Amino acid sequence: MSGTLPEWLHDMPLLKLDLSHNNINGSIPKLPLTLNRVDLSHNYILGPVPQNIGDMVPTLEFLSLADSLINDLIPNSLRKIVTLTILDLSKNMLFGNLPQCWGDSREIPPLWVMKFSSNKLSGIIPSSIGHLSELGWLHVNNNSLYGELPLGLRNCTSLIVLDLGENGFSRNIPGWIEGLESLRILRLHMNMFNGKIPSQLCQLLVLRIIDLANNNLERTIPRCFGNLTGMVLDESSRAEFRQNGRLTA
C-alpha cells in the first residue's frame, strides 16, 4: 500500500489500526478517539508525532511508529495516555531530549516496553523515568545521550532489558545496578564509562548477556563473574535466549 493516510480515518470507530510494513507516506492525520492499538511502523511517514497525541488517543495501549521518517521532538502529551503499555519510536529522526514528564501526573502509564533507539536524541535520561516501576524493556541505544545514569533508574526494578549502547554516558557504572534483580540483558556498549567494573554486577543472578565493550574501563574483571549462573546456557534456556536475541535486535 502506498499514498497518504486519509483524513476520513478519524471518523471511523476503530479499535485497532495496523498498516505496518507498507509504503505509506505523508504525515500522521487526526486518529480515531477509540483506538487502543496503532502500528504504522516500517513506512515512510514524515513529520512529527502529533503534539496533542495524548488527547487524540487517550486510551491507547500500543503505539509503534518505528522505522520511518518521523522527526521533531517527542511530545510530552504521551504521559496523558495512562493506558500506554508499549511505545516504540525507534529508527526515526527524532531529536531533542527524552521527555521529563513521567512523574508529573498522579496516573503513571503502565509502560512495559519503551524504545527510542536509533534516533538523534541528546541530553540526559530524566530521573522521572524511575516512576515507571513496571518498565521491563528500555532501549535508548544509538543516540547522543550523555551524563551519568540517573539514580531514579534504580527504581525500575522490573527491568529485563536495559540497552544504553552507542551513546556518550560517562562516569562509573553505578553499584546500585545490583538492585535490578530481574535484569537479563545489560548493554552499555560504546560509551565513555570509566573506572573499574563494579563487583555488584555479580548480584544479577539471572543476567544472560552483558556488553561493556568500547568504554574506558580499567583494572580487572571481577572474579565473582564466575558466579553468574544465568549465563550458563543449557537446553532449557536456548529457546528463551533466541527469543531475547530477536527482540533486542
Rank of each mutant, 00 (worst) to 15 (best):
I160Y: 04
C156K: 01
L46M: 14
T4C: 03
G245Y: 06
N142I: 11
L40D: 00
L153Q: 00
P174A: 08
N172Y: 06
T83F: 03
E134Y: 12
Q243E: 10
M231W: 03
G136V: 05
N191R: 11
P109Y: 00
S20Y: 12
L204Y: 00
F225P: 03
S122K: 01
V232Q: 10
N23M: 04
M1V: 15
P150Y: 09
Y44D: 10
M12H: 13
P50V: 08
C202N: 04
R223L: 15
L35V: 15
P99W: 13
L207A: 02
P109M: 00
S117W: 07
I74L: 12
L98V: 05
I173N: 01
P50Y: 03
L138P: 00
R208Q: 08
S118F: 06
N227S: 14
L138H: 00
L188A: 02
S105R: 09
P110C: 08
S199Q: 14
L183G: 03
P99Y: 10
G123Q: 08
Y146K: 10
L233Y: 04
M1W: 12
L94D: 01
F169G: 04
C101Q: 04
D11G: 09
P50M: 05
L14G: 06
S237M: 11
F241V: 13
S144R: 14
S144V: 13
L19R: 09
Y146I: 07
N119A: 13
H139N: 07
P99F: 12
L151M: 07
R219P: 03
N119S: 12
G168F: 09
K30L: 13
I108E: 01
N167S: 13
N76R: 09
L40I: 08
A239M: 11
L205R: 15
F169D: 08
L188F: 13
Q200V: 10
P13G: 04
I210G: 02
L164M: 12
S199V: 13
S105W: 06
L205H: 14
S128K: 07
E7M: 09
T83D: 08
L98H: 03
S133V: 15
L138I: 05
T4D: 02
S127K: 07
L69Q: 12
P6V: 15
W137C: 04
L94Q: 00
E148W: 11
Q203E: 14
S41D: 05
Q100R: 07
N23R: 08
S237F: 03
N194M: 12
V57M: 06
L89W: 04
E107K: 14
G165Q: 00
G179A: 04
W137R: 02
V82W: 04
L180A: 02
L164A: 02
G152F: 02
M93G: 15
